[in-house]
Amino acid sequence: MAVTETPVTDAAQSPRMSKATHQRLIDIGVPVGTAFALLVIWQVGVRLFGVPQYIAPAPTDILGVFVSEFPLLMRNFWPTLIEAISGFFIGNMTAILIAVAFVHSRSVERAFFPIAVFINTIPILAIAPILVLIFGPGMTAKVVIAALICFFPTLVNMVRGLQSVSPQTLELARILSASKSEVFWKIRLPSSLPFLFSALKIASTTCVIGAIVGEWIGANVGLGALIIESTFNFRSPLLYATVFVSSGLSVLLFASVSIAEKLIIRW
């Protein structure tokens, strides 16, 4: 069972190290370079063909607006962030609790799963106006929409995760005379975490979509409201800048969930 490692001399190791560093540079450099090249093509193309700014602004125009309108962008960034995060927590917590109920009782699953599927089949764009009508133009409607969009993927993954325990592990629990709650806390819940994090990664980007869609329907602040406003006023560079901020928000939430996953799931 002993593993014999081939001894590596320093002389042999250092070129290999630099090769690894070289590889890393290529891994980072290629996508960054490609993105930069595309921006240059965009810039040159827009200027070369004299495309009007309200149809397609050049990257430098967008950057200019991003700097000059930064306070405006931030003023609209925070509400969307709060709505997205609140929706993320409420939607996922609800999904987790319902998944636990489903795994606990088959009849609850039989009664409510079809309803959950039905809710998921309603396009979010169709249900959003209804929710705005119910909850009014404040933040609540946006939070509910963001929560709703997170809900279903987490429910499905969490149910699968809680059921992912092998039959032998359950036999082990039985031999140890473990109670239902011990099986849940010590075996089922930790087993489900990798599945849960897959769902949370999806939810971290979709909750931003939910918040923005909610703001489209009726809001005076938020990135979604700013998108609508700048589109109607032909302020295309501001529109583009808002779109980039929105995707930046999604990336931020996705990265936070990924970091949490790395810290929690070591196996």
């Binding site: 629990a173 140890l176 005379s177």
Partner: peptide, 30 residues
Amino acid sequence: AREFAFVFQDATLLPWRSALKNVELPLEIG
């Protein structure tokens, strides 16, 4: 009364627990 113990064909360790924590599992149950 834990008079017997079972060893399966598969080790059935809990993957998130260290070797020591896995050995301690029967002491935590109950």
